[in-house]
Write a protein that binds this DNA or RNA. Structure first.
Lengths: 103, 103
DNA sequence: GTATAGTGCAACCATCCAGTTGCACATGAC
DNA sequence: GTCATGTGCAACTGGATGGTTGCACTATAC
């Protein structure tokens, strides 16, 4: 799957969006810390973090017995590129249709 | 839910991304036409188009007995804004941490 | 008129997955 | 050492939903 696809799949879940937003606002946090601020269990948070890591949107770093997660928003670019591509394609089509209509 | 949330939910499905990409490349098409170019039935295409319309990513227009769909990529902006907000939040946090580390 | 092509709606099924619970293991504090 | 805290893994469950089939309805073509 494309990188953009992975990003959309990861962000397609509302809770996952909350997780990453929370993480961005905290700066860095462990699954346990995030679970304290969210209405779900640590296990659920872990699964979401795994999915986000899979998409390259967060990274994990072991620190003693704690695992600290951080946001890595670089991949947002892939999703943005996908959207602007679709938009551009549509715009080109639209322009073509308009030219034809003008003739 | 936020508009950005709706966009991500809509684009979270791979088939739905194919549908909107196909629609953008065709310019405009009915559910029947799209079903011909995709490996799913018209009914499935309809459901996806409904979801995309719900998110404001496509619009439908009746034309005789045919219903023609078009891409309306304006809503992509909401999703992009969400991503840049999360990124900015993280960047601000990062800068703060770096300042503290530099002290 | 009839035949054809398109749409809309409802029911059904299978699969996926978010979330939970429970337990074992690891690490730091004392 | 013990105790507390945090993580990892596995099994299970309920609900959501992507996809299908079937049928009724509508509009164009002839």
């Amino acid at each position: 799957m494309s990188d953009a696809g992975r990003v959309f799949d990861a962000l397609g879940d509302p809770t996952r969006r909350r997780v990453i937003a929370e993480l961005a606002s905290l700066g860095a946090a462990s699954s346990t810390e995030l679970a304290r601020t969210l209405p779900i269990t640590r296990q659920a948070v872990c699964k979401h973090l795994d999915a986000l890591a899979e998409a390259g949107l967060v990274c994990a770093e072991r620190n003693g017995r704690a695992v600290v997660y951080r946001v890595t928003p670089e991949r947002f670019g892939d999703a943005m590129t996908w959207m602007s591509d679709v938009g551009a394609q549509w715009d080109a089509r639209l322009a073509k249709l308009r030219r034809r209509a003008a003739r």
